[in-house]
Design a binder for these strands. Structure first.
Length: 471
RNA sequence: GGCGACAUAGCCAAGUGGUAAGGCAGAGGACUGCAAAUCCUUUAUCCCCGGUUCGAAUCCGGGUGUCGCCUCCA
């Protein structure tokens, strides 16, 4: 089986062939750290977190870099508003990002470079472009000469003339052609600045990603990813700069995540419909959000609403319920207990194959999740029927869900924790009342427990408790 | 205006030539003192009109609708 993925550059699904397997180099455009991240940002980071984990699962050794843009116009503006220096602002929101990402179970990339810590390599890259006649100085600024680079528009699949027709020039820019973009911006009063061959100034947005990607991952990287709105101009410009400087392919595969929409519209600051991760997590479980994100294909637009998230939660809880029950059953399981025959073992094997098949097809997470649900039904049937349970079978089931969870991270897989002595006694007293058919007492105790966040379920195999999930 | 994506049951959603996965919600049933969980059953003229094909949700053409990029934006 081979992994196929959709490459924005060619607009088709291609077989994934890294340059130096099993090594894979993967660059993801990270946040500009001028504010808390919103749930649309979170979608992108979750998706590429999952893709990266899946590649590792498939035996690749992924080296991932995700940058922090800690210097640009938005940073400068926001810092002024907050009364902070640009670097203080960056520190604040990098810390906030790390907190949010951790709560969403996004694993940090191996490399998390900051633009301001790589001014040297950035300047070197600009110089290379200058030497090759692809950059020019105008005022104190340096611009990329898009007209001099053959192949501009290859990623966004736009003809140069069409792009020019739509392009605008901001006041104060000194570029020759509307599509040219700043590699280096000369210092304005009060702005942070670094020394350079062109005088004091700061890097443009696009050059930092090219520079850091090549600095850490090499001049040709395997995967480059980001949100769909980065295709143009950001990634187009990265292609131009990097290929322009080295003459080599910059990124072999470009992956782009679809938008997360609210009210049928793209979420954006200007529309005022932004929901931050912090705001979301005040009311929702991070795992429900991950599950929600993974229930759609990563390239499709996805609508967000409270209702849809609640729908996702109900589904996720079914899988969580199964996982908890498997662990509970494991505690009382025996090696020689009935395992229901070959049927379930082959169902587990088939599930693993189909899971991989779905994920190999351009990371079809929705299809892969469906496999987990189908196996869940088989597993539930077994859990309801047999007692005690066969240890080996339970272990194999848990192994399968464990593998899937190592990629998706949508379940809490854990041994059941224990209850306080007091609560245990309440349950025992209720059992006693039930034996005496004293339903009033039994129900009163059940209500009391529920008030303390403990939900009781009377199953054919005895009473079972679980903690009420938050939010 | 240019480029592009999408349109599958009440809702979400997978599915690129062989006759519609999965989830949520609903209905009925089993189990249960009740509840919960679970299991069983049940819900689709695949946006419209043409065409190609023995056969199309899937391919082609034309509509209609929604969204996006072309400007900072994940």
């Amino acid at each position: 089986m081979t992994l196929r993925l959709y490459n924005t550059l060619t607009r088709r699904k291609e077989e994934f062939k890294p340059l130096h397997p099993p090594a894979v180099t993967f660059y993801v455009c990270g946040p500009t750290v001028y504010d808390y991240i919103h749930i649309g940002n979170a979608r992108v980071f979750i998706i590429f977190d999952v893709i990266r984990r899946y590649l590792n699962y498939r035996g690749y050794r992924v080296k991932m870099a995700q940058n922090y843009t800690d210097i640009d116009d938005k940073m400068i503006r926001r810092a002024a508003e907050e009364g902070l220096s640009v670097s203080e602002l960056a520190d604040k929101f990098i810390a906030a990002y790390e907190e949010d990402a951790a709560r969403l179970r996004i694993r940090p990339a191996e490399l998390q470079p900051r633009a301001t810590e790589h001014i040297g390599p950035i300047i070197k890259l600009i110089s290379r472009l200058e030497e090759r006649g692809l950059a020019y100085v105008s005022g104190g600024d340096v611009y990329f000469d898009t007209g001099a680079f053959k192949g501009y528009g290859q990623l966004s699949h736009q003809a140069l003339e069409e792009l020019i027709a739509g392009a605008r020039v901001e006041p104060g820019e000194r570029k020759r052609e509307p599509l040219d973009f700043a590699l280096w911006k000369s210092r304005k009063p009060g702005e942070p600045a670094w020394d350079s061959p062109w005088g004091k100034g700061r890097p443009g947005w696009h050059i930092e990603c090219s520079s850091m990607a090549m600095h850490y991952l090499g001049e040709t990287i395997d995967l480059h990813a980001g949100g769909a709105d980065l295709i143009f101009p950001h990634h187009e410009n990265e292609v131009a700069q990097s290929t322009g400087a080295t003459g080599k392919t910059f990124a072999r595969y470009w992956l782009h995540a679809g938008y997360l929409n609210i009210d049928q519209q793209k979420m954006s600051k200007s529309l005022g419909n932004v929901l931050t991760v912090r705001g979301l997590l005040e009311n929702f479980n991070p795992l429900d959000f991950r599950f929600f994100i993974l229930s759609a294909h990563y390239r499709s637009p996805l609508s967000f609403s409270r209702d849809l998230l609640l729908q996702a939660r109900s589904g996720r809880e079914r899988l969580q319920e199964l996982a908890d029950n498997l662990y509970r059953a494991l505690a009382g399981s025996r090696r020689e207990a009935p395992d229901g025959g070959e049927k379930l073992y082959s169902a587990i094997k088939a599930a693993r194959d189909r899971f991989i098949e779905a994920m190999d097809d351009d990371f079809n997470t929705a299809g892969a999740i469906a496999v987990l649900f189908e196996l869940a039904r088989e597993a539930n049937i077994y859990l309801n029927r047999e007692h005690p349970h066969n240890r080996k079978l339970l272990e194999q089931l848990l192994a399968l869900y464990g593998e899937a969870n190592e990629i998706f991270d949508i379940l809490d897989l854990r041994q059941p924790d224990s209850l306080d002595e007091e609560l245990r006694q309440m349950i025992a007293r209720r059992e006693e009342a039930r034996r005496k058919k004293d339903w009033a007492t039994a129900d009163r105790i059940r209500d009391e427990l529920q008030a303390q966040g403990i939900i009781l379920e009377d199953t054919p195999h005895g009473v079972r408790w679980k903690r009420k999930t938050d939010t």
